[in-house]
Each structure stands twice: as structure tokens, then as C-alpha cells.
Design a protein around this nucleic acid. Sequence first.
DNA 1: CGTCTCCTTGAGTTAACTCAACGTACGTGG
DNA 2: CCACGTACGTTGAGTTAACTCAAGGAGACG
Lengths: 219, 219
Amino acid sequence: MQPRQFGKGEVMVEEDKPLSSFFLLCSGAARATRTLEDGSQQVVAIFLAGDVLNPGNLVLGRSRVSTTTLIPALVLSIQVVDLFALMEERPAIMRGLWRETALQAAIQREWLTWLGRKSAEKRLAHLLCEFAWRLQTGNESEIFELPLTQRELADTLGLSAVHLNRVLQKMRSRKLIDLNRGRLTIRNKEGLYEVAEFDSAYLEISNAVQSREDTGGRL
Amino acid sequence: MQPRQFGKGEVMVEEDKPLSSFFLLCSGAARATRTLEDGSQQVVAIFLAGDVLNPGNLVLGRSRVSTTTLIPALVLSIQVVDLFALMEERPAIMRGLWRETALQAAIQREWLTWLGRKSAEKRLAHLLCEFAWRLQTGNESEIFELPLTQRELADTLGLSAVHLNRVLQKMRSRKLIDLNRGRLTIRNKEGLYEVAEFDSAYLEISNAVQSREDTGGRL
DNA sequence: CGTCTCCTTGAGTTAACTCAACGTACGTGG
DNA sequence: CCACGTACGTTGAGTTAACTCAAGGAGACG
């Protein structure tokens, strides 16, 4: 088990390679992308401090996505063999990683739903709400570091960069948000939530179950 | 543990309800959908014989999607408490369910990618390839029961039913496939795979790892 | 001071959508 | 056995959200 520092834009996990290490993101941010033959990309997950990178890969043995830092990041890495030994000793760890896998799948399901059924503006609004929720530090500040370029946002939302830019400007002119060089300001939280039809239930599960199981869990 | 028969179109798991049972689909087919406020739906998973329904929910404690049979289905259901007792005894079961969760997440990631980055025709072609692969019985037949209406296909691919119909007809006229009352015929497998840019790797993981771990696994 | 990456804007195009009507198969009850 | 209802599929016509291509700004950095 060793901490490891990655610079901005560094690849932490490569696509289609068997994986040897487990990574816990301690600080920074990262994104998992799938690259297609024609060169286009789809971002399938965004990892923030505290997240496990692609937990499902541990049990699948390889990664189908490549994971890259968005900003410099500190990760804790553990050799897979050591981790499995640890899990044998403490099943709660396996259970925790399983839960993390399920949680990330739930987020993906949400993305899938919005991609399939909502307009560009609603998708963007929803993603921003998700970030705000996940980054919320307890204080009521509405300013966040959003370490994604417009290109990357577009690749996350299944849009072209040009169109994303236009949608962004519409939201700026509507005084919902402001986004400047990686700094997101939410000007009208209620308005944004309304546009996004945001319901944080899919994210809250983690906390709810966590506490429920701390008292009643078996493992 | 008890087998249970569901009719066509019956709801097996309800949205936003805490779940009490684990379901293994023995025969038939089902789909998991998320319904939005405006009434539109997105299908986020399709389950075929042998699949576990929403394994991630076991560890999250509730379901964010509702799961409905597409055709009559026989499921094996186990009370969650019993299952957890079983997992305590045999960690391999937990591991298996974790893997199932990861595998379904991998499929979802694939869907997400295609939804975000590919045309309607390619998406449809890809979904059909996925079905053909998952339903493949070993024989080389290219005729399958596809228990989805055009409406449901559209809801899976993030398209309108009208547009899906048109895409379907284009593929019919190109002699790639035929689809009639739930019966899919693949007329030109190579052509279809090419349009879809289909690579079954994301599905094959399950088998590959299965055998790898049967020999070298710890649990 | 040039160069690179990111952002912005304009103009034209197109894939996919909506609405609305009509066709077709199937099952049910009179 | 036929008439009717319903669910699914098909077609037409018009609209629009999002795309592509292409060019021009604006910081950041060596």
C-alpha cells in the first residue's frame, strides 16, 4: 500500500489492460473514458476525492475504460493480490467495494437516462447539480472548482463542443450559473434544480445505507 | 427460496421501494426502466434467462428502477436476509454477486457510450448484436425471439418510436435484418457487425474471468 | 513574442423529433 | 362468427435541436 502522485492529464488506468492495482482517489479528480474507433470519446464516470476508481474492474480483472486525471491527484494504490488477501480476512471490505460498484452503477444509470431522454440544457444542468452535490463540503458556498474543459463536458453529455458552448451561454444569460476557467458559480440554485429536475436520491443511497448498516449490518 | 411465475408485463421490482427479495431469472426476459416526470421512459437494462435482477440493489438496499417482465418469466426468489446469511457462510456467493453487478455495469457503460456517441442506426445494430450474442445457444441459427416492441426498443436506444421504425425499415431494406412480431432474423451477420462496430469483449469478460478464477481464485 | 489550448461566433446542414392519421393483427364479448 | 376495441406498426409532412465546418479571440506559458 503506497500513496502515489499523478500530474494533470496522466493516465492512471489503461483501456483493455489487465489491472494489477486498486486505486483510491485521495485528492484531485479523474475521469474514465471510452474511446471509439473514429476518435470520439465518451466520458463514463467522473471521480472525485474519496472515490474508488473503477471498483468493478477488480472483480472483472481488466478495465474497458481508461482513467485519466483531470487535475493533479493523490491516490492510494494497493496491489490487487494484497487487496484480495485483505478481503478474505475482512469480508466487510469486499462488501464495501461491492457497494461502491453498485453506487457507481447507479450514477451511470442516471446518466444513461438523461442522455437518452433529456435535452442538452437539462443534461448539463443535471450534471452540474450532481457535481455541486458531490462536492458540497457542508458550507453553503455555491462556488466550485469544476476541473473539466468544455470539450470534456461535451464528451460527458454526448454533445458536440460547439453546442455545449452555446447551451452554456444560454444558461449564463439566464443567470443560472457562471463558468469560467474551471470555476463554477451557481447563481440561482432553485432555478438550476428545477431545470435539471434534480433529485439527489440516487446519490444519497450511499449515506443512508451506510448508516443503516453500521448498526444492523452483519459483516 | 422459492420459484415464482410472473405473467407478461408484470412488475417484479418497484421503483423507489426498499427491496426484500433477490431474484434470479430462470426463463423469460425482463427490462429495468426508469420513468421520468413527463412520462417518458428509459430502459436501462434487459435481463435474459440466467441473469440476476439488479444485483447492485442488494447492497444499496433499494431499487431506483422498476423491473417488468417482457414475456412470462420464471424466477427464483430468495429473501434478502436469507441470502445475506448465506453470503456470510460462503463468501464466494458475495463475490459472484459483486461480479454480476460489475458485469451489468460494464454493459451499461457500453450503452452509455453508444447513446452518447453513435447514430440511431449504429445503436440499434449494436443492441441487436448484443442480443444475438447473449441469446446465442451454441447453434449457428440467426433467428431469435426478441421480446421487445418497437416502443420498447426506442426507449432503450433513446429514440422516438417513429424514428426507430424508420431506422428499422432502412435496415430491412438493406437486407441486414428482419424483425416481425418479436422474431428477429439476422440476414447479414458480417454487415450487421460492421455497422454496429460490435466488439463482444465487454460481454466476454464474464466467461474469461470465470475460468481464470476457477483455477486461481482465493474465495 | 509566438504558440498552444481553450473558448466563442457565424452559417449552413441534417438527424431526429412531433403531431396526426391510417393500417393491421389479435382478442373478446355480443 | 362478426363487430369492435386495443395495441402495435407504418407513413406523411413540417419542425427543431443538435451537428459540422471554418474562422477568429483570448489567456497561459515558455
